[in-house]
Design a protein around this nucleic acid. Structure first.
Lengths: 249, 249
DNA sequence: CTAAGTAAGTTGGACAGTACAACTAAGTAT
DNA sequence: ATACTTAGTTGTACTGTCCAACTTACTTAG
């Protein structure tokens, strides 16, 4: 009990009425895990770290991110949006805070804490990496092949886990879809993220009952029976279902 | 694209091979939302801020927390555990990261980011506030009556929401229970947190099927039929149920 | 000693939504 | 025309909740 919050959060010892804030501060960064479903697989956008002298993890791949700029970033989310736009040139239809990782050893430059976000992007033709040093990597059932900088492998693993877990009982994958899509398209995305087949009829019943999507007056043509096209109803936040998919079987 | 992560995360401009880390850093704190069910209500532990000169929000009530101490705290969770022990004298059976809040304006002393945790504590007789400046406050259906320091009202609201939401489909309330408890006790805690009655038989079926608790060879005596006492099976992490309670009806 | 009262715990039917599987529908390719 | 493929529907079995009535085990009042 030698340090209560009052003492720690600043007692005037030097600068009189402005509090003692002259102790060492951790480094503060924001990182973004950007997911998309591309080529029938869940993929994540990574950037290659610079090779400059004194750079930690030179040439390694890392999550897009960087230091909070207290002059430009109003808040953490604004900082995440900035990183996102810098790497993809778009604003994501879904951005959620994932958590924070902070410790003495995660960055060789000193005690640092990162605020991690995760974003879902549709697979638009135009949504290739907006930056030269960025690339999409598949995150299959297992881990990523390459070794990531910092503790970014942990962060990515947590993001995948969170995504999978939420997909079990929410409509999150809707944000991975292009503006118009069919129900089989949507089911396929669910199956890719969950890495598991789903029942067609239960899936359709649930999605249509969720009041989340609406049909557009068009069909997707193909080499077989055309499929109804749908779009997301506007301004819908994710829907939570009362059950998970595929209960014990 | 004038700042990619490489440039931001430190380009050597002054100190050669150690990177340019001499830009202003946000303040970094950790706050803990500590919940318990006491007196038939969900309560949260708050501490009163000191009244010293230059102190932000003097005398206001706030979540227990404070600056990360880069010498004492190995990582963020260790820092949260430290705050928790300082205020309650105990280690909590459940501690989960809630999220982070960071912005230019949340602390008058400058750009600051806090890492918020939430903890669940059993209502033990010995678990009164371990610090003189700490007190339990009820968080009923509505908001807290008092005004909290910083953006702690937002954080508390997020914590209550997260707790309620998780209680719908997990065994989290088990961590709010004393070492031995009855099924009606457990159901009562669920009902207090959810602020809604639950079905007795469905509740029992689900809890017993979850393989989460085990009976002890004792009964709770009372003015009527005695109830079987149970305890948590050891080393059980929270169980996720395939459905929420009380589906549409 | 019995009757009333209360809370613990059980039982069984109605219902909702999924699992599973077979079916129909609508297009293309041969 | 016929085979093939995918979209979409239908119907039965099953699981677990919802709801309500019931039994059990104890205390207290008369």
């Amino acid at each position: 009990m030698d340090t209560d919050s009052g003492m720690e959060q600043g007692r005037g010892t030097k600068s009189g009425n402005s509090g003692a804030l002259d102790f060492p501060r951790p480094l503060t960064t924001v990182d973004v895990v950007i997911f998309a479903v591309r080529d029938d697989a869940l993929q994540v956008l990574l950037v290659q770290r610079p090779a400059g002298e004194g750079e930690p993890f030179p040439d390694s791949w890392a999550l897009p991110g960087g230091f909070v700029d207290i002059d430009r970033d109003r808040d953490l989310e604004a900082c995440a949006v900035r990183k996102l736009r810098e790497k993809t040139g778009m604003v994501s239809p879904y951005l959620e805070q994932l958590g924070s990782w902070g410790s003495a050893g995660r960055d060789p430059r000193g005690w640092s804490a990162t605020h991690a976000y995760f974003a879902l992007m549709p697979d638009l033709p135009a949504s290739g990496p907006g930056a030269a040093d960025a690339r999409w990597f598949g995150v299959g059932s297992g881990k990523l092949k390459i070794r990531l900088a910092f503790d970014h492998a942990d962060i990515l693993e947590a993001a995948v886990q969170r995504l999978r877990s939420k997909v079990e009982y929410t409509s999150l994958p809707a944000y991975l879809m292009p503006p118009e899509f069919t129900l089989p398209d949507l089911q396929r995305v669910y199956e890719i993220v969950l890495d598991r087949p789903l029942e067609k009829s239960a899936f359709r019943t649930r999605m249509l009952a969720a009041d989340l999507i609406e049909p557009v007056a068009k069909m997707r043509k193909g080499p077989n029976r055309p499929a109804q096209l749908y779009r997301l109803k506007k301004a819908r936040s994710p829907v939570f279902f009362a059950r998970t998919f595929n209960a014990p079987g």
